[in-house]
């Protein structure tokens, strides 16, 4: 199929945007078998990892930040998720994938597991910051409560997210790779 450059870019952009909307819509939904201790997979984190895995530093950082703002929008905005997802994007993009990990389902799941542990740790540290120095009119968990909740939620979220990672990673990556191939063919 011969596509003009512009229409190809537009299609790619809208498919990418649609995939974010699907992730946003999945976030408040609870389907049977997708829930552990009241926690669902962190779809937006999965999306950021899937995006960043084959992208450069700046693309990953921008996507992480923007998706973090989106997640703030559908939940309470303080403390912000933009910070943790920004860091996740940067870390995933700078992993030495060629050297250490292959791009199969297992390694993607492992990356997602590690990244969700890191993301939850960052959020827990943000909560600790607020416990230590509460902002104006803000009141949050105490240190020991953050710690006990962190233990439960991190394990559940990391397990579920890494199990569901291939469901999102495989089609998205397939699409993006297909688009890259078309791009390469048309320029050569």
């Amino acid at each position: 199929m011969r596509w003009s450059k512009l229409s190809r870019k537009l299609t790619n952009g809208s498919v990418t945007l649609a995939s974010i909307v699907v992730c946003l819509l999945l976030s408040p939904a609870r389907f049977p078998g997708m829930e552990l201790l009241g926690v669902a997979p962190n779809w937006l984190l999965l999306w950021v990892v899937a995006w960043s895995i084959n992208r450069n530093f700046w693309q990953a950082a921008l996507a992480g930040w923007a998706v973090g703002l989106l997640q703030d929008g559908i939940s309470e905005p303080v403390p912000t998720r933009a910070l943790s997802l920004l860091i996740i994007g940067i870390l995933t993009a700078s992993l030495k994938k060629k050297k250490y990990v292959q791009e199969d389902f297992i390694s993607v799941s492992l990356i997602v597991f590690a990244m969700s542990v890191i993301a939850e740790t960052i959020v827990a540290l943000q909560f600790c910051w607020y416990a230590w120095r509460p902002g104006d009119g803000l009141t949050f968990l105490h240190f020991d409560e953050v710690w006990s909740y962190y233990q439960d939620v991190t394990l559940a979220s990391a397990l579920l997210s890494s199990l569901w990672a291939p469901v999102l990673y495989y089609p998205l990556n397939y699409w993006w790779r297909h688009m890259q191939l078309l791009e390469a063919n048309s320029t050569s």
Binding site: L25, L62, A66, V67, L69, D72, G73, I74, P77
Partner: peptide
Amino acid sequence: SIVVLLGAWSFRQSNGRILYELYSQI
């Protein structure tokens, strides 16, 4: 990049209203 960040920011400021409208319809 600026358009993406502005879009994400305004979504955050609107408390994700558009998304929850879509969600309630679905």
